[in-house]
Amino acid sequence: MQTADAAEWQAKAKGLLKAELKRRNVTYAGLVEKLAAIGVQETEPNIRNKIARGGFTAVFLLQVMAAIGAKKIRLH
Rank of each mutant, 00 (worst) to 15 (best):
M1K: 02
M1L: 07
Q2Y: 10
Q2L: 08
T3G: 06
A4T: 11
A7G: 11
A7P: 12
E8W: 02
W9K: 15
W9Q: 15
Q10P: 09
A11L: 15
A13E: 15
K14R: 15
K14G: 07
L16G: 09
L17H: 04
L17Y: 07
K18F: 09
A19W: 01
E20S: 05
E20M: 05
E20I: 00
E20V: 05
L21W: 01
L21I: 05
K22V: 01
R23A: 06
R23F: 02
R24P: 00
R24F: 00
N25D: 04
N25L: 06
V26K: 02
T27V: 09
T27E: 04
Y28D: 09
A29V: 11
A29R: 03
G30F: 03
G30W: 02
G30S: 06
L31D: 04
L31M: 06
K34F: 07
K34G: 06
K34C: 09
K34S: 03
L35K: 09
A37V: 12
I38L: 02
G39E: 00
V40T: 11
V40Q: 12
Q41M: 12
Q41N: 14
E42C: 12
E42H: 14
T43F: 00
T43K: 10
P45R: 02
P45K: 04
P45F: 02
N46R: 13
I47D: 03
I47E: 03
R48N: 05
R48I: 14
R48P: 13
R48K: 15
N49V: 08
K50P: 01
K50F: 13
I51V: 15
I51K: 11
I51Q: 09
A52T: 13
A52N: 15
R53C: 05
G54H: 11
G54I: 11
G54T: 10
G54Y: 10
G55R: 13
G55H: 09
G55L: 03
F56R: 07
F56C: 06
T57F: 13
A58F: 14
A58T: 13
F60Y: 08
L62V: 12
L62N: 08
V64W: 04
M65A: 09
M65T: 07
A66L: 10
A66S: 13
A66V: 12
A66N: 13
A67H: 00
A67L: 00
I68S: 02
I68Y: 04
I68C: 01
A70D: 01
A70L: 01
A70Q: 06
K71M: 02
K71N: 10
K72D: 05
I73S: 07
I73N: 06
R74A: 01
L75A: 11
L75W: 11
